[in-house]
Design a protein around this nucleic acid. Structure first.
Lengths: 214, 214
DNA sequence: TATCAATGTCAACGCCTGTTGACCTACACT
DNA sequence: AGTGTAGGTCAACAGGCGTTGACATTGATA
């Protein structure tokens, strides 16, 4: 034993093994990496699998197989299944500026926008399927609600004080639509066209947003 | 070899091993069995676990442990995890006769009834959590919709021809409420009282049920 | 060209799962 | 009293899971 070694009162640090190198010799840390294609393929496959199968049935192995790479690469680039999901479940509702719409007719366009968003991006499937039995995913949904939907709706609420409650009411209807149409696939809800749905649900949303406190 | 034995061209039947004995010597096949308490304990534990964890995270082993018995008993009495879920997910909405209510005020009582039903019986939690990533459970939800909700609502629809569509619209709102309040736990929705929710959502349901085709 | 980190491959680990078969125990009937 | 069967226990199986470590290959930099 060499008595000159530093005393062991320091933490052995994170011991990052071979996780996610830091590129210390590069000037721009966000420069494109040679592995970007692989990372993207993993993320795409992950979204597909999480969307189709939910969190627990989607496995690292099948995701890797879909992406045409080794399961170990998934661990290398994303650390764990949990973190892979967190990366795959990033989502932007892309809500338009609702103040530009006629104040009493926001509902129908909003329904149409959400239907397009659901049908064009499977990330929301992945999120909802996972959120139902996975607390981290549920937290992510609450976050999207609080950071994206609620603020956008607050701009068109007559009384900003209870804007959160009104946004919550809107969420019950919008998420219920997605659940019954895309996940449970209740036949009558599947059969209706986006325009029909907008016509029926639009006034509901308008009432939740603008009707004075009952 | 006895040549009088029947020729072997018959199917060896189901080969039920030791599954679910038939009680051939008893007169009443549905007489109470000595194992009824165990069966009930299994079913109760199964509902709790399926409700809390969803289909895949709920394991036969933990369910058996909750019930204080051996995992093999679960297999003996219910055959497989799939069949255990099918047994645990039996559900009756217990909808009242809606025709007895004032025709234009069905919505609010209906909301209150459904909230009571959700809070008093975890079976619906089990069903919804499982249905999102389990096709058999989704089919069960469609079945409850088609056999219980839709017929009850059809009795109060002005035009029975599109009663199914109106029931579908009601389902979007009711299931969306359950999803956001009990599963995702969106704070504003959790915070509202049953009466507040009935006041807000009641008119929505009334409109879906009674408004002329838009 | 030599070097070394980034990228990728392969095989295995420990754990947990649904399910099964062999084996006891205790009750209800004759 | 004796016997057959329902009820219950135990240990193991085969397979899948997330995850890891050792090793090979590639390509940009020096």
């Amino acid at each position: 034993m060499n008595p000159t070694v530093p005393p062991p009162d320091h933490v052995p640090a994170e011991h990052p093994r071979r996780a996610e190198p830091e590129y210390p010799h590069r000037s721009a840390p966000d420069r494109p990496r040679r592995s970007d294609a692989t990372r993207a393929a993993i993320l795409t496959a992950a979204r597909e699998r999480f969307a189709a199968d939910g969190y627990e049935r989607a496995t690292i192995r099948t995701i890797a197989a879909d992406a045409g790479i080794d399961p170990a690469m998934v661990m290398r680039y994303y650390g764990s299944k949990e973190k892979l999901f967190a990366a795959a479940a990033e989502f932007d509702l892309r809500l338009p500026d609702l103040a530009e719409l006629p104040a009493d007719g926001i509902g129908a366009p909003l329904v149409r926008h959400m239907l397009r968003r659901w049908e064009g991006d499977e990330t929301l499937f992945a999120l909802l399927r996972a959120a139902v039995s996975h607390e981290a995913a549920a937290e992510r949904m609450r976050q999207i609600f609080g950071a994206q939907l609620a603020p956008a709706l607050a701009r068109v609420c007559p009384d900003p004080a209870d804007a959160a409650r009104r946004a919550g009411l809107v969420a019950t209807q919008m998420l219920g639509l997605a659940l019954t149409r895309y996940i449970l696939r209740l036949p009558p809800v599947v059969a209706m066209s986006p325009d029909e749905l907008a016509t029926w649900l639009g006034p509901t949303l308008d009432r939740y947003l603008t009707t004075p406190e009952p």
